[in-house]
């Protein structure tokens, strides 16, 4: 039995297509990433899988349970951390956690081992109201609340959006540990660099899945050689490259310009070398197609 199964899921909001024939499977114990920009349909997909929204067509199952027929059972088994902070702002850290434990018929004590690493950082503030926490702390509390009933599948909708690079790295460290506990995790992110930390990823844009594979295979499947060029004035170099008919595409990427070619190009002065593409290069290439 797969942890998550989607079969031709489609959804429209009036005229706007939110999801179009989305199909994929997530294995038990897998850390699966949904990578795409705002408006690509990630949140709609999460809401369908957590039984909060009905698709127009297609089937979906979580832990072998149908999202329409068995919605009550699914709700007991999954943990969901929505993109927007949705804990009780007027309850304290501890009250929120107690509340979620009680709703799921468990206690903080029973599954404390699951949240220990995360909650220990929150404990000094356990009497603080959730609304008064910083962004990073809110994120940790929300994760603790989503975990307290030991869900079999954990849904995390953009948990690291707007979070600084240090806290983001820590958060992914926590996910790795949870995966070792055997929890299946579906996580979405607009940060392409986080994709490399997943077992498998689906690249999604405008409601359509562009590609599903391991991060290594996605970058290995990049269809052509990719080069990096560098100079002291990258913006001038970018404009120059774009005017060259031998250049197929050129775009800024960190300290360099990434370039694909129509035909062989010899560059003078600037450093120009073939490089291994990143997930972000692959996404850009797929958007171009």
């Amino acid at each position: 039995m797969k942890a998550i199964q989607l079969n031709n899921i489609s959804l429209k909001y009036k005229e706007v297509t939110a999801l179009q024939d989305v199909s994929f499977e997530v294995e038990r114990g897998e850390l699966f990433g949904l990578i795409g920009p705002d408006g690509s349909g990630k949140t709609s997909l999460f809401r369908i899988l957590t039984t909060l929204l009905l698709a127009d067509s297609g089937q979906a199952a979580v832990d072998g349970l149908d999202v329409v027929k068995n919605y009550k059972e699914i709700r007991e088994k999954v943990g969901y951390m929505p993109g927007r902070f949705s804990l009780y702002q007027d309850l304290t850290v501890e009250e929120n956690l107690n509340f979620f434990a009680a709703v799921f018929n468990t206690t903080i004590k029973e599954n404390y081992y699951l949240i220990e690493d995360i909650y220990r950082q929150l404990e000094p503030f356990k009497t603080r109201r959730a609304g008064k926490l910083s962004g990073g702390m809110k994120q940790k509390l929300a994760l603790s609340c989503a975990l307290i009933h030991k869900p079999s599948v954990l849904f995390l909708d953009e948990p690291t959006t707007g979070v600084d690079p240090v806290s983001r790295k820590d958060f992914w460290g926590m996910l790795k540990k949870l995966k070792q506990q055997g929890i299946t995790i579906l996580v979405s992110t607009p940060y392409m660099d986080e994709a490399a930390l997943c077992d498998r990823i689906a690249l999604i844009n405008k409601g359509k899945i562009l590609q599903i594979n391991t991060p290594e295979n996605i970058t290995a499947n990049y269809p052509r050689p990719l080069y990096a060029a560098e100079s002291n004035d990258n913006y001038s170099l970018l404009k120059e490259l774009r005017q060259n008919p031998k250049v197929r595409s050129a775009y800024i990427f960190g300290e360099a310009i990434h370039v694909t070619l129509n035909e062989q190009l010899t560059m003078n002065n600037e450093q120009f070398m073939e490089i291994t593409p990143t997930i972000e290069d692959c996404f850009i290439e797929l958007l171009k197609e």
């Binding site: 920009p37 844009n205 171009k288």
Partner: peptide, 8 residues
């Protein structure tokens, strides 16, 4: 630039 696709 939060949340927009890499091309945009």
């Amino acid at each position: 630039t939060g949340g927009v696709d890499p091309v945009t």
